[in-house]
Design a protein around this nucleic acid. Sequence first.
DNA 1: TTTGCAATCAGGAACTATTATCAATTAAGG
DNA 2: CCTTAATTGATAATAGTTCCTGATTGCAAA
Lengths: 135, 135
Amino acid sequence: MSKPIQRHSRQRQVILEELRMQTTHPTATELHQLAKQRLPNLSLGTVYRNLELLTRTGLIRRLDTRGGEARYDGDCTHHFHVRCLRCGRVNDAHGLSAAPVKEQVQTLDGYRILGYRLEFEGICPTCQKRPTRQR
Amino acid sequence: MSKPIQRHSRQRQVILEELRMQTTHPTATELHQLAKQRLPNLSLGTVYRNLELLTRTGLIRRLDTRGGEARYDGDCTHHFHVRCLRCGRVNDAHGLSAAPVKEQVQTLDGYRILGYRLEFEGICPTCQKRPTRQR
DNA sequence: TTTGCAATCAGGAACTATTATCAATTAAGG
DNA sequence: CCTTAATTGATAATAGTTCCTGATTGCAAA
């Protein structure tokens, strides 16, 4: 059972390009809408399949998500994110480092530590302007 | 529309107790199995409903999860987690401080920052012993 | 070129985790 | 007790994602 050869497909190319054009960390559905403008009968399944494949080969990053949809990031340099607790949008937080924290950890309960993720939570500018919903 | 009065139910009590007894940050399903031993006809819906309510009132914490199921933590003191990239289990990482990191950020792109989450990724002891799956 | 074949596709069904609905039950205050 | 509304179990519905089918396509060797 050898590793399958990855070949070049127009769909994958377009999906990757569209993701890289965005700074908004789109969801699979959003990306599907965008890419569909160039490939009208691109299926959502194909978008998911390729996002998975591109994530696996390290060309893009998949961002965790609080319950909702996964978001994707075309920028693989090490950086962090700020997530809006109201609307769920995600922005970059460049220029920060959690390296001092990482240095505190080599192993943790026998885990072999491979990396870390740091994410800030808050309210985005747009949501700050919007009145708070009634509970 | 006033806030409903929260009353005391046996189910909620048991769910909370079982969660607090665990150090493993169980998923809703796992917790359902555990609590069912004490309340045999406890429904999964009730578990979800109460986990949501307890999270909202701040008695427990819901942990983000990479795609799969949400996990819950009965310990609300501020601490971090290590997640196994292979099996998804989560352990605590007490005794670390990310305060220096937080101090780097007051506002970020106009966001009002309310908190941050730091999570380590690695391979847990059990999975280190298991041979790597073929790709 | 043409051909062979595995990688990839579109479309839709299936699956998984979670939330909503609803009639019946039950906690809590009067 | 009695009333009222929160809560429950059971079940249906939803959302996001993955899986399956048969058709298509990129690529390498003939």
